[in-house]
Amino acid sequence: MTLQVEHVSGGYGQLNVLKDVTFSVAAGQLTALVGLNGSGKSTTINHIIGLLAPKSGNITLNNYQLKKDPVAYKAQIAYIPEQPVLYPELTLREHLDVTINSYRLNQQSAWENAQKLLKIFRLDNKLDWFPVHFSKGMRQKVMIIMAFITDAKLFIIDEPFLGLDVVAVKDLLQLIDERKNNGTAFLITTHVIATLADHADQFVYLKDGQVAAQGPMNQFQQSVPELVSEG
């Protein structure tokens, strides 16, 4: 088991958003975290990546507990936020350098991987561009490339399909499937359930900060038909 979220409750200040949330993400599997606005998806993600501390419960990644060994825990994660976060003073090339150095990757193999990804997402001729020149979709592609050059055991991706063109969505799904086949775990939040229908191994449905349903697509579809039809 890669990621285990066990009986987690927490939120912001005195406000409890999550109430006894429990689910797991196995190696080589994609778990889709879904729910309506305000259901607790972002709060769950913020707890898993360590921006928020649970008031109760445990979060474990490959036997490393977030609260006991945060450095080893976080070193296993690649996170792609919904809104791209780039340094305005750094070029695309420098962003990749920062990622390679932060994850202590082999320079040669990491750059070989980066060149392939840059070509896939049609950014190979923009290495010396600054973020100010990128569209929102291009910034999102930069975040994807930065994540996928790592050897992270768990990818956490927040609403990856919003802002991407149809070709980029197809390319991203192909990359996800390839990494899954190599044992990487994925936790993805999305409102576009249909896009992940053939790729997700399980869906976890949050409602009012609680897990209201979970399971593979056929089981999930029966449990929450109105949400699936909207997606």
Results as ranks from 00 to 15, higher is better:
residue 7 H to D: 14
residue 82 E to A: 05
residue 86 L to G: 03
residue 46 N to W: 01
residue 139 R to L: 12
residue 163 G to M: 13
residue 177 D to L: 10
residue 171 D to Q: 01
residue 79 Y to R: 02
residue 214 Q to R: 05
residue 32 A to F: 00
residue 224 V to I: 13
residue 90 L to I: 08
residue 210 Q to K: 01
residue 41 K to T: 12
residue 103 Y to W: 11
residue 188 I to S: 08
residue 171 D to V: 00
residue 22 T to E: 05
residue 70 P to K: 10
residue 163 G to P: 15
residue 69 D to F: 00
residue 205 Y to F: 14
residue 139 R to Q: 15
residue 147 A to H: 00
residue 24 S to I: 07
residue 143 M to I: 04
residue 170 K to D: 15
residue 150 T to V: 02
residue 105 L to Y: 04
residue 35 G to I: 05
residue 86 L to W: 03
residue 183 G to D: 02
residue 94 E to W: 07
residue 210 Q to Y: 00
residue 195 T to F: 02
residue 179 R to N: 07
residue 89 E to P: 03
residue 86 L to P: 01
residue 20 D to T: 12
residue 166 V to N: 09
residue 227 L to T: 01
residue 191 H to G: 02
residue 7 H to F: 01
residue 21 V to M: 05
residue 38 G to F: 12
residue 201 D to P: 08
residue 102 S to F: 05
residue 143 M to R: 01
residue 212 A to E: 02
residue 115 Q to P: 11
residue 173 L to P: 10
residue 205 Y to M: 09
residue 186 F to P: 11
residue 58 N to K: 11
residue 115 Q to L: 14
residue 96 L to R: 04
residue 204 V to G: 06
residue 134 F to S: 10
residue 85 V to D: 06
residue 196 L to I: 07
residue 20 D to K: 06
residue 188 I to N: 07
residue 85 V to G: 03
residue 226 E to L: 00
residue 128 D to M: 03
residue 6 E to M: 09
residue 7 H to Q: 11
residue 162 L to I: 15
residue 114 A to C: 10
residue 197 A to K: 14
residue 77 I to T: 06
residue 222 Q to P: 04
residue 53 A to Y: 13
residue 57 G to M: 08
residue 214 Q to E: 14
residue 130 F to H: 13
residue 40 G to A: 07
residue 75 A to V: 06
residue 128 D to L: 02
residue 145 I to Y: 04
residue 24 S to V: 12
residue 103 Y to I: 10
residue 66 L to Y: 02
residue 94 E to A: 12
residue 207 K to H: 14
residue 146 M to L: 14
residue 38 G to P: 13
residue 3 L to I: 06
residue 167 V to K: 11
residue 56 S to E: 15
residue 14 Q to C: 06
residue 177 D to S: 15
residue 74 K to Y: 09
residue 170 K to A: 14
residue 32 A to V: 00
residue 93 R to T: 12
residue 135 S to V: 11
residue 14 Q to A: 14
residue 127 L to C: 08
residue 104 R to Y: 06
residue 206 L to F: 02
residue 161 F to T: 15
residue 26 A to F: 07
residue 61 L to P: 09
residue 9 S to V: 04
residue 38 G to I: 13
residue 182 N to C: 09
residue 34 V to I: 15
residue 207 K to T: 10
